[in-house]
Structure formats: C-alpha cells, structure tokens
C-alpha cells in the first residue's frame, strides 16, 4: 500500500454555471459509487427504521410499515464533496417530516445511523421543513445496495455524504456529535454553495 493522494479535487469544465456550486463539475449521466467499506446487504425482513434518542417514545417501522407511510417523489440536484454534481436525480420515499410528525423532543441535532456503522450529524432544522427524505427508489427502480439501498437518507441541500446510505434510523440529540466524515476533518455542516468541504472552510 502506498499512501499516494488520489487528489479528489479534479476540476472539469462547468457545463451549467449557476446550477453548479463552486468547485463542482456536472457528472452527466454517470452516478459515481463511493464506498468507505463493504456494502451492507440487509434483507428486508430484518430491516427496520428507528427514531430514538431524545424522544418521548422510540419509533420503529418495519419495511412493510415503512412502505405504508405517505410517499413523495423528489427531483433534486445532488453535490458530492469529491466534486461531482448530478442534476435532476429522481427519488421516491418518505419525508423526515412524516417520520418525526408526532415526536416530542427537545433535541436540536440528529445523527443518522446506518448499517455498516456509518453516521452523519445534522441540525434537526436541516432535516425538517421538506428538506430531507428517507428514499428507497431511484429513477423508478428499487434503490440498489451500491447506492445505499434498501433505503438512504436524502438531504440534497448539503454535500452528499450527509445523505447517509443504508440508513436505519435517526438519533435525536441535545449535543452535536460529529459523524464518520465530520470527525475526520470534513466540515460539520457541509453547504456546497459555501464550499464547506473541510473544517474551517
């Protein structure tokens, strides 16, 4: 093994200025798969989604129960911190507003947790108000494991690492706890339009 930098900073010509955050390029029809570990393969009969932590009562949905929640179609641009952006991605899933609808909490932060141990932290106000979903469908097809299936978080206004693949729940917290990339020097908030890639940006 040699620790040679792959230089995830490649810049390409911007095709649609105004729609591309600074330092991003349009990946076009591609959809790069980034993985920091083995791809979890959780069978649907063992899958559930939980809301836990600072809540009046823990919530849990089995896959079948999750499927009966109100569904939304979402078409959004997504922006990866490794500098690719993808326009007009089509998803379907359940809004986080629906999942938190009757939760009583004093929490101000949320940590998404995933199969495989991945976590990412967000302000609670960034996953509510129609800004975040738990999606299980991409481009009309069940979300593949490579892209985070059976279900991933979708928070398109932040860098894509906040859209946790293989998500299994949300932990509501009083204190902000840095997640997998946030604890490794990536920006705690990750706004692509302010190019918040690294801590201190």
């Amino acid at each position: 093994m040699s620790f040679v930098s792959r230089g995830f900073t490649g810049r390409r010509r911007a095709a649609s200025p105004g729609r591309l955050p600074p330092g991003q390029y349009d990946v076009g029809d591609g959809f790069p798969v980034l993985s920091a570990g083995p791809t979890p393969r959780t069978s649907l009969d063992r899958w559930d989604f939980r809301v836990r932590g600072q809540v009046d009562e823990e919530r849990r949905w089995s896959w079948a129960e999750f499927q009966r929640l109100p569904r939304e179609s979402i078409v959004v641009d997504v922006h990866c911190v490794t500098s690719w952006s993808k326009f007009d991605t089509r998803w379907e899933g359940v809004s986080v507003d629906s999942l938190l609808a009757d939760v009583v909490t004093a929490a101000e932060f949320v940590a998404a947790f995933s199969d495989g141990g991945y976590t990412t932290n967000l302000p609670l106000t960034d996953v509510t108000g129609g800004q975040a979903w738990v999606v299980d469908t991409y481009d009309g097809q069940p979300l593949t494991p490579e892209h985070g299936g059976p279900a991933r978080l979708l928070v398109p206004h932040l860098y894509f690492w906040k859209s946790a693949k293989w998500v299994r729940g949300l932990e509501l917290t009083l204190e902000d706890e840095p997640g997998f990339w946030e604890s490794f020097g990536y920006h705690n908030y990750g706004d692509p339009w302010r190019e918040q890639r690294y801590a201190g940006d």
């Binding site: 093994m1 620790f3 792959r6 995830f8 790069p32 798969v33 980034l34 993985s35 920091a36 570990g37 083995p38 911190v81 490794t82 141990g117 690492w161 990339w181 490794f184 990536y186």
Partner: peptide, 20 residues
Amino acid sequence: HPLYAHAPALVVRCPNCAAV
C-alpha cells in the same frame, strides 16, 4: 487489510472485524 479508496479518504479496515 481491505482498502477502500473510492471515498473522500482512503479507508483501511480490519480484515477480521471490518472496523476502520
């Protein structure tokens, strides 16, 4: 050790328990 290079960092995992 398994190395995952296609991520925002090089991630090296334990060959036994897969922890980072």
